[in-house]
């Protein structure tokens, strides 16, 4: 597990989660002339989440390209140019839109190194997770990508990790799915300097605890922190592990955590059926059965499309209270 937790408190001077992305990309673009960004509404607007604001003005429109809304061609442009020797960032805006480019991602980009021994240094960036917008703007597809051999998946929960992980991705010869939670876009936090790289497959201990652990990622880390406060008032001290990437997965930290507490909750906001939380709970149980005091409890979303109605949408995904109840359940064994 990494020990890269920032030491100074978060202040208003710190950059946002989106600005952390800009910062990491800028630094790497200065060093590598073959990095370019392609996506919709990037040049003037700086992307719908301000994730590349000002970069076109600094580096020019040859390196920040406005694209038609044409996901298959966008990813193909990234894939072919990555095979050729560039290091493109393809910005798909919402990961829901990647479904129009699934052949390019899963059949092509993920398999070229294996079949043709050719690196595909391609970053596909998109927002992910549940916010407003309904069934076509709130999918959590990370398990699908983590399931696909050849792809790596980043799911940062804070500015520091966004910057450190995108910098690592932009030095990697492999395709990376970089998922930024839309509800975190404006959240400020400290970031690392130009030499701070966060390796994929290294979880971060957000909070130490004595009684039980919540293993999670993305926006659910925010909910887990609120749940931990609530549980502290009830005398339960919970540890929080942020996975930061889903592939490679930090199985060492997962196993250590299960062995340490024997009481573990795995949580995210994707539909639970067939999700990454199922993978973690199953493999961690197989590997650490004798350390378990009870079953690993999973918390996730209903197997239903997300509704546009905010109350219906909230009802489909885990609440802070669901996390509190799950921890109390593992404490009951």
């Amino acid at each position: 597990m990494s020990t890269t937790t920032p030491t100074t408190p978060t202040t208003q001077q710190n950059p946002t989660y989106s600005e952390a992305f800009q910062s990491g990309v800028r630094e790497e673009m200065k060093l590598n002339p073959n990095i370019f960004i392609l996506g919709t509404d990037l040049v003037e607007r700086g992307g719908h989440f301000a994730q590349v604001k000002g970069i076109a003005q600094e580096f020019g429109v040859d390196r920040v390209k406005d694209s038609p809304i044409s996901e298959a061609a966008m990813v193909a442009a990234g894939l072919g140019s990555a095979m050729y020797g560039c290091h493109p960032i393809i910005d798909l805006n919402f990961i829901d839109f990647s479904l129009g480019a699934m052949d390019e991602i899963i059949n092509q980009a993920a398999k070229i190194r294996f079949m043709f021994n050719r690196p595909v240094p391609l970053v596909i960036r998109a927002t992910s997770g549940v916010a407003l917008g309904g069934a076509h703007h709130c999918n959590s597809l990370e398990s699908l990508f983590a399931h696909t051999a050849g792809l790596s998946v980043a799911v940062p929960s804070r500015a520091y990790d966004v910057k450190g992980l995108i910098k690592t991705a932009l030095r990697s010869p492999d395709p990376v799915i970089f998922l930024m939670h839309k509800k975190l876009s404006g959240v400020r936090g400290e970031i690392g300097d130009e030499n701070t790289f966060i390796p994929f497959g290294s979880a971060n201990k957000v909070k130490s605890g004595k009684d039980a652990a919540i293993i999670s990622y993305g926006y659910t880390i925010v909910s887990a922190q609120k749940a931990a406060q609530n549980l502290a008032e009830q005398g339960i001290d919970v540890e929080i592990i942020d996975l930061r990437t889903l592939y490679p997965l930090d199985t060492d930290t997962i196993n250590e955590t299960v062995q340490k507490f024997g009481r573990v909750v795995v949580a995210d906001e994707a539909p639970m059926f067939g999700s990454i939380t199922a993978e973690i709970a199953a493999t961690a149980s197989e590997a650490n059965f004798k350390h378990l005091k009870g079953p690993i409890i999973r918390v996730g979303a209903a197997r239903a499309p997300l509704s546009a109605n905010p109350q219906m949408s909230e009802a489909a995904i885990p609440s802070v209270n669901d996390l509190v109840e799950a921890v109390k359940k593992v404490m009951s064994y």
Partner: peptide, 29 residues
């Protein structure tokens, strides 16, 4: 790939996109 053959393909229609991407790379460089 080293010698410019970016692959046959099992997916109908996929080759044009890959070649288009290579052309993006050619132009970028």
């Amino acid at each position: 790939v080293e010698n410019g053959h970016f692959g046959g393909n099992g997916i109908v229609g996929a080759g044009v996109g890959i070649a288009m991407g290579a052309a993006v790379g050619i132009k970028q460089m």
